[in-house]
Amino acid sequence: MTRTAGRFSIAPWLLLGPFLACFGVFFALPLVQSVGLSMRQTFGPAASEFVGAANYRNVMADPLFWKAVRNTVVFTVGNVIIQLPLALLLAMLLNRPGLRWRGALRAIFFAPVLVGVVFVAMIFGVIFEKRTGLVNQALHSMIGWDLDFPWLQRYVMPAMIIASLWQYLGFNMVYFLGALQNVRKELIEASTLDGAGPWQRFRHVVVPQIRPVASFVVLLSIVGSFQLFELPYVLFNGTAGPDNRGLTIVMYLYQMGFDQGDLGYASAVGWLLAALLIVFALLQRRLAGEAGRGARA
């Protein structure tokens, strides 16, 4: 370290100053305020009255909130169990020694990450249309799929899982690729000499070494999936879609806070969202931990 400990120095505070000022005013302050706000009913940003825990009770008693939770959880679980194994598979294919066009392929798979979620919604909103949409037409010509399959009328969450798969597969692939490149080659070679097959090598050599990154990717994926809002919002022009099939927790928060002007109620939804996320993150850690013990045994 460059400074004698204990002596006050102005330099670090000067460097931290802009961050602390901005962070304090626009992050810490609203975060603290949201606790009090969540116990008030507001009518737009200016007027409010204290209602105590009523907001939380009302949110929990609203069937729409639970519908939003269910949709969000379906989307999250779908993302984690479909997208992440595919991302790992893709990374393993790209990581094969001697593969040609690796750079170009990686760039192609990564390109959708750059497309903002609003623009993904613009594209998939038309692609998923009945009759005229690309998805139904392509599936119809290949396997005789129903041209009138109602993606955006009934199968909203599957449609969004597919759109999200297109958008984020390359993002998760990059993390797995990074982890795979750090897997120690000697161990792979040693296990091959010991007569381990491809599956055994994957299970007992590769998986333990990529576990930290995999666990990080799962967490990132859960946190990201819980923020789902723009995709259904733009797809359904600012509504939750037919029969609220596109309603997510964040959209519920947005509707209550900004369409109806009750920022207090929206803050309560925000805290419940945070609580749900923590539960999910802990659950994931436990599952990962158990899988880890299973692998070592």
């Binding site: 609203p30 940003p45 923020q227 920022l263 207090g264 803050s267 925000g270």
Partner: peptide
Amino acid sequence: PPTLLLAPGYQL
């Protein structure tokens, strides 16, 4: 989660 700050941030 950034969405937690939407409502109080707007009020601020």
